[in-house]
Every structure is written in C-alpha cells, then in structure tokens.
Design a protein around this nucleic acid. Structure first.
Length: 561
RNA sequence: UGGGGAGUCGUCGAAUUGGUAAGACGCCUGACUCUGGAUCAGGAAGCUGAAGGUUCGAGUCCUUCCUCCCCAGCCA
C-alpha cells in the first residue's frame, strides 16, 4: 500500500483518501479498510446516494478492502421490504456488489446486551418523561437542559424497568432508555440522548419479536463496530453526532471505527431530499418513484442513463466538506459521453412533414446501408428502406430561412442521411396556409449521399420512408424544476417546470426499431439519445428521451432573433 | 448572541503543504465533418469572503471581522 511519502504524494487525493492513507501508514487499522453504505429502507435511492455509494465502494476497492451494504432498519414504522429490494437492485445496477448484505436489525440482540452493560456501568437509565417533557427539559441552543427526575435510579431498578419495557408491559412512548451524559453539553446530541423507545410495530425483518427499537445514534456505531468497519463515512449533518458515536463505543470499550463526514450532493434543478421526492410522488406531480424526471436511480435507469455515466459523474464532482450545488449539465455531459461512444444510431422523425419525390420510380423501394455507430466500427451497418414518399422533420424546412440555415428551402438542396440529395421544387399548403407537403426532385446519381460532380451539400437531414416507418410515442423530458435551487424556494411546488414532460404521439422511426426491448438505448440522429420505455406495447413503441444532442444551430438561431 | 462545519473562475474543485492560483463542466472563437453530433485547436473567466499583520515571498501562518450550512425527533 502506498504511503504519504512515496511517489503517490503528488497525486490529487481527496481528504478521505488522505486520511485512509495516513491510517494505513500508521497502522491504525492494521492496513485494513472496510466501509459500508448504510441506507434506511424507507424510500428509493437517488443521485445523492449514488455519490455515497461510489465513495464507500470506491474507497474499499482502492485500498483492497471491502464494503458492506447495511440497512439501517431501526424504525419499523417507516421501513418496508419493497425499499430494501429496490435498494439492493439499485446498488447492483450502479455496478457494485456488496461484500455482505446486512441489517442493523441483525444486531438487536447484541445491542440489547450492550445496553444492559451501559446500565450496569451507571451510564444509562430508564426515563419516564413523555416526549413533550423531554423536549421541555432539553434546554435550548443557548440554555442548558434540566436533568430528568429519573436520572439517578438504581442499576437494579433500571435493569428491571428496561426488561419490562421489552416485555410489552408499558405503552408506546411512555418510557425510554437514555444515555447519562451531560444535560448542559453545548452539543445538544449529548444531552442524555434516547437510546431506545417503545414502539409496538411490525418490523419487516424481525416481525413482532420486539416492541423496543434502538435509535440511530445508538445502533449505528454498534453496527459499525460489529462489522469491523474501519471508516464510517457519513454526510456532513452527522458531524455533530460524532462525539456521541465515540462516546458509546468508548463507554463500552469495544472496537472503534473512525467516522468521517463529507458534504452531500446538491444537484441543480432537482431535489435530493427523500421527504420532498416522496411528496412529488404522493401528490401526483410525477408518475412514480421511477418517473424519468425524478433524480432517483430507478428513474435514471428508466430514462436511459448508463450506470457508467453516474460513476463518472461521482468521480468528477469530487469529495469535500463544503456545500456544493453541482450543475445538472455536468451529469448530462457524463451521460452523453458514454452514450456517444456506445449507442447505436437510428433515424426517426418527431414532427413529420411529407416529402414526395416526383421523379422517383413508382413503387420502387431501395434498401440503403447505414453505419450504426461512427464511434464504433464493430457496431456494423444496417439497411434502411427508401422510397418516393418520405417524412422529414418539419423544422428542417423553412420557406424563408435566415442566413446560415443549411437545411431544405424552396429551390435548395439538402442531403438525406445515408440517402440521396434532393431539391425542393414546390411547397404545398392547405387552406389555412399551413405547409403540408414538399414536392422534391431526387438526384438519382447521389445514392448514399455522394454527389458525383463533387458539389458541396452543406446540410444533411434525417428522414424515414412513410410507408415503412413505424409509429412511436416519444416522451421528451426536461428539467423537473424551472429554477436551479428548488430546495431553497418556500414551496417547491410553485417552481415545478410546466414542460418537464412533452409527449409526442405522432413520431415515426425506422423499422429496425420495431422489436426493440425496454431499456434499449440508442441515438436518434440529430435529435438525441433515447431508450425504449417499459410502457411499450406489442403494437406501440414508447420512447424516453434520455438527453438531447448538443444543438449548435439552436444557439445560432436564438441569437439571430 | 451555545456548539460544530465551510468560504478559491458562472458551477464543481486542485495547489508538492509559505514560493508566486491546475483541471473539469458551462460559455465564446475557429478548424473539420454525409449527425449544425462527435473530434481538434484556441479564448474569456478567480488577484483565493473582508481588513490588518508576519515574511524577500501567503490561498496556505497570526489577528479581527463578515457570510453561509448543521444541531433543540421517542427520524435517519
């Protein structure tokens, strides 16, 4: 393993990597590295969790250690098996295999024994105060709290009461086990924190075996200790809890991991708060936890984001302690980078405009070869049917175009991708003046798009053969919120973007896409990256737009106005 | 106004730890191009929250101040 003094000293390491190196160098954990990702199974994982997962599994892999997936399942009221299943699936999808999948609830027995040990040491007591009374006696940020009248019960009485709490003798909320620390501590977490509360609830794993459940602050350090975790990586809001983490472990005199806190990720134009995401789902602002507009991993998977892009994103945003708001554009960049390299290309038209080739032989259909992926020769080629009646993108024709518009115009020429060069001879309009058809001449000598006379054709547009194209419903997704920091607005519901989902029912794609399976990711040339949604039916293709392509023309056009 | 954290280009984020402010995304130019994609080349953009101080020299050390975040769940 590298030490801080060797060549590696010049590498750019983040502060956690540095700490681990120092520990390895000093032998604090005998060169061992063991981390854990500890989600509570009360919701779906989001992009913020992906950062944590990548850091925890990444540190373990980097130092030849291991990383566990441990469910922090200490609150049966909020937790469900559905969430543990989705979390396991999401972690694996992201590309990580836990050394072990464990549950804090696996340690309930040991935790109980340790609690009795603390009582015997005079460091914990059963308190009969109600929740309201506990709050009233806790003090405030500037005033110390008052000691509970039950603080000095005898060990025997505490033990007796504690065991009776477990046997179901007392009603919910009537008693708690509290650590006897310091009601005047400036750190509120040290003012005799609750270790156990009485909760008559069915637990998704332990069933009805318990009616007392441990609090996070008590359960977490013990779970870490049991598993031999070396570096307990937590988000910054747990920094205030570290003294308590240390106090429990030191009071018990058991193996003591090092807790290290890092800043959680904030992503622009979205929310990474479970509570608010739940509200979006429950209030129907989105179609579910995996609605492709959501920042959950399930949604990103459905949207077509490759897991490799998320890992790359996590690596690029870095690890530090200051608050940060990462621009969504960086995530999109990572997504495009992977997809550009891997996604096969196809042609499809979202807003069709009919083109009739007046000189094309009646009824003739030609199969034209097309390259599947210019970034990957091994992706091979396919054939696309070409005929005398085509559909092109309405935006690729302008009757009176501005300067620098090099697509189709009256009397102008344009190349059909992988096809022929055509010239627009006539614009057909309906009674309302709307353009409904273009009558064009096809230069029959330009098959494949090459002009034998060497003339330059600046524009190339996408198309499909009207008779062969298959219909598709396309869901175009954009940012869920119209402002960069919806989390800072009084009510995030007021800044929900109205056009975050635009469904196009009349899109047409080339026939090669007919049998594409849900999840299949590809590029619709000149439009963006798409994937087949699980909503697709045998007779109806449903596509999700994963991301757009960079659109230089849009910028030019916008400036022109 | 108690305690704990944090302040470096628009956004992230480095700086061998006192030695003369990386890189990435975004933005702007240009080249190239059968995706106005991709790629390539170049550019603008921070005097490092502020003010003092130490020093030949400070983002790095000292002092004072300012701003932001977290904590008063029997949530995690």
């Amino acid at each position: 393993m590298a030490t801080p003094t060797d060549e590696g000293a010049r590498e750019k390491l983040h502060f956690i990597q540095r700490i681990v190196r120092e520990h390895n160098a000093s032998g604090r954990f005998d060169g061992r590295v063991c981390t854990r990702f500890p989600p509570e199974p009360n919701g779906y994982l989001h992009i913020g969790h992906a950062k944590s997962i990548c850091i925890n599994f990444g540190i373990a892999a980097e130092f030849g250690g291991k990383c566990n997936l441990r469910f922090d399942d200490t609150n049966p009221i909020k937790e469900e098996q559905e969430f543990v299943d989705s979390i396991v699936a999401d972690v694996r999808w992201l590309g990580f295999e836990p050394a072990e999948i464990l549950y804090a609830s696996d340690y309930y027995g040991r935790m109980w024994a340790w609690a009795e040990e603390l009582i015997e040491k005079g460091l914990a007591y059963v308190c009969d105060l109600t929740p309201d009374q506990v709050r009233e006696t806790r003090g405030t940020l500037t005033e110390p709290g008052r000691e509970s009248p039950h603080r000095n019960r005898s060990v025997a009485e505490n033990l007796d009461l504690f065991r009776r709490m477990r046997s179901g003798e007392f009603p919910d909320g009537s008693r708690t086990l509290r650590a006897k620390i310091d009601m005047a501590a400036p750190n509120l977490n040290l003012r005799d924190p609750v270790m156990y509360r009485i909760l008559t609830a069915h637990h998704h794993r332990t069933g009805d075996a318990w009616c007392v459940y441990p609090m996070y602050d008590w359960a977490h350090p013990l779970s870490d200790s049991v598993e031999g975790i070396t570096h307990s990586l937590a988000s910054i809001e747990f920094e205030n809890h570290r003294p308590l983490y240390d106090w429990f472990l030191d009071s018990l005199g058991i193996y003591h991991p090092q807790q290290i806190e890092f800043a959680r990720l904030e992503l622009s134009h979205t929310l990474v708060t479970k509570r608010k995401l739940r509200a979006l789902v429950e209030e129907g602002h989105v179609a579910g936890w995996d609605d492709p507009r959501m920042p959950t991993l399930a949604a990103m998977r459905r949207r077509g984001y490759p897991p490799a892009a998320l890992r790359d994103f996590a690596a690029r945003i870095g690890v530090a302690k200051d608050e940060n708001l990462v621009e969504y554009a960086l995530l999109e960049h990572c997504v495009r980078e992977v997809l550009n390299r891997e996604a096969p290309r196809f042609l499809g038209v979202l807003d069709p405009l009919r083109v009739v080739l007046t000189n094309w032989p009646e009824g003739k259909v030609e199969m034209l070869p097309a390259v599947n992926n210019p970034e990957d020769e091994s992706a091979g080629t396919r054939e696309i049917p070409f005929s005398g009646e085509l559909l092109i993108e309405a935006a690729d024709f302008m009757e009176d175009p501005p300067r620098k518009f090099f697509r189709l115009r009256p009397g102008g020429e344009v190349r059909l991708r992988w096809g022929y060069i055509i010239r627009c001879d006539e614009v057909v309009k309906d009674a309302a003046g709307k353009i409904v058809e273009l009558r064009c001449t096809c230069d029959l000598d330009t098959r494949g798009g090459h002009a034998p006379d060497g003339r330059k054709i600046k524009g190339t547009i996408h198309w499909v053969s009207a008779a062969h194209a298959i219909p598709a419903t396309v869901r175009q997704y954009g940012a869920l919120f119209s402002v960069p920091e919806p989390g800072r607005v009084e009510d995030f519901r007021t800044v929900l973007a109205e056009d975050s989902l635009v469904e196009i029912a009349d899109a047409w794609v080339e026939p090669a896409l007919r049998d594409a399976e849900p999840g299949f990711a590809f590029q619709l040339e000149r439009l963006g990256y798409y994937c087949v949604d699980r909503d697709r039916a045998a007779d109806r293709l449903v596509l999700n737009r994963t991301a757009t392509l960079r659109d230089t023309w849009a910028k030019i056009a916008a400036k022109g106005d």
